[in-house]
Each structure stands twice: as C-alpha cells, then as structure tokens.
Simulated assay, not measured.
Amino acid sequence: MEPSSLGRRSKQVRAKKRIEQLKGFYIHLAVFVIVNIMVITGAVVGNMGNGESFVEAFFNFGTFSTFFFWGIGVVFHGAKVFSYNPFFSKAWEERQIQKYMDADKNEMKKYL
C-alpha cells in the first residue's frame, strides 16, 4: 500500500468510528425521549386515577425521577460524544504538558 492510502484508510476508520458514536448518542436520545413520554404519561394518568388533580400528578418528583436521573446519563453521553469536557480541556492539557516539560528542563539544568 502507498503511504497516502494508509493515511486515507486511517481517516476513514476514524470517521466511521465517529459516525458510530454519533449514531449511538442519537439512538440513546430518541429512546430517552420516547420512553420518558410513556413513563410520564403513565405516572400522571395513574396518579390522577388515585384521586390527584392533574397539577398534583404532573408536579410530583416520582413523575420526573426517571427523566431526571436518566437525563444525567444522556448529558454525560452527549458530552463524551461531542468532546465537551469543561474540566480537562485541550488548553488545560497543553498547560500541564508545558509545566512538566519545563520541570524536566529545570531538572536537567541541575546536572549540566
């Protein structure tokens, strides 16, 4: 194989992996929305059947608990897929690399 075809193949593999990650996230998001609509509807109807008003049934923590906790997972999944990390950004990584390179350089100066 030619070197250019190896690079193209590598890019193709990375692109395919990225598409699979995006597809997985969008499927996760779609299932999240569909299941939570059914869960919330069932909870509201069930609570109203037990004598609660619509407002009482709708604004009940139990009604939204699945949505809330599963939603946390969806947010983290999306953050991973879209490479969002507010704590360990590329700038943070570069600062850490530079810090360790400077420390290594200073350590080497001790022996020169």
Rank of each mutant, 00 (worst) to 15 (best):
I34A: 14
W70A: 10
G49M: 12
E20M: 11
F64N: 03
G49K: 08
Y26V: 11
S53P: 13
F64H: 14
F32Y: 07
V45L: 02
N60K: 05
V74C: 15
F68Y: 05
F25H: 09
E20Q: 08
V74P: 00
N50Q: 06
G46N: 08
I40T: 08
K17C: 02
A57E: 05
F59N: 12
F61V: 13
V55D: 05
F58Y: 03
S53D: 10
N36Y: 06
F54S: 03
F58M: 14
G71W: 09
F25E: 06
I19H: 12
V35R: 01
V13E: 12
N36S: 03
I72W: 06
R14G: 01
K16I: 09
V31P: 00
G62S: 05
G51C: 02
F76S: 05
V13G: 03
A43Q: 12
A15R: 10
F67H: 06
G51Y: 03
S53W: 02
T63F: 01
T66S: 07
E56C: 01
V75A: 14
H28T: 08
V44E: 02
T66E: 02
A15N: 14
F76N: 13
F59S: 02
V13S: 12
V31I: 15
V44L: 05
F25M: 10
N47C: 04
F58C: 02
I72R: 08
I27Y: 15
K16H: 10
G71K: 06
V13I: 07
R14N: 11
M48F: 13
F69L: 05
G73V: 11
I27K: 15
H28E: 04
I40Q: 07
F61C: 05
G24D: 12
G42Q: 07
A57T: 01
F25Y: 15
A43Y: 10
V74G: 04
K17A: 07
L22T: 14
N36I: 07
V55W: 11
G73T: 10
V45C: 04
A43K: 13
M38E: 03
W70N: 01
E56Q: 12
N36P: 00
A57S: 09
